[in-house]
Amino acid sequence: MKFGILISEGPYTHQAADSAYHFTKAALKTGHEIDRVFFYHDGVNVGTRLSIPPQDERNLQKDWSALAKKHEIDLVICIAAAQRRGLLDENEAKRQGKDANNIAEGFRISGLGQLIEMGIKSDRLMTFGD
């Protein structure tokens, strides 16, 4: 079965990104497909490569990047939500005249249409938020 995952809260403040991660791992382990993970609202903050959690804590960005690489999962950050919150990829930083970008490996920035498309194409859409 094909799952789409929506994460709508940021890392560390809320458990949502953790729950979604454990769900995704379990789904892959039990033979399901994860079509795409869409990050919305504060969830976009999972995708910054500049976060440095204490070493004895989990690193959600790295965990997601690694999982995406291993299983070819499409990690999509909503552009409208990202721009409000200061998440930029290289192209967007250039286009907006900003001096830095911060998107982590394996994540890409795209539009809300990707969320709707995920809803259409996946068999089940799972939402993790607060």
Partner: peptide, 19 residues
């Protein structure tokens, strides 16, 4: 909170998908 506004943004984009 921003949820109501960002929900509306999804609805507006989603409208183009003819669902």
């Amino acid at each position: 909170t921003i949820y109501a506004l960002e929900s509306l943004e999804v609805v507006l984009i989603g409208a183009a998908f003819d669902q």
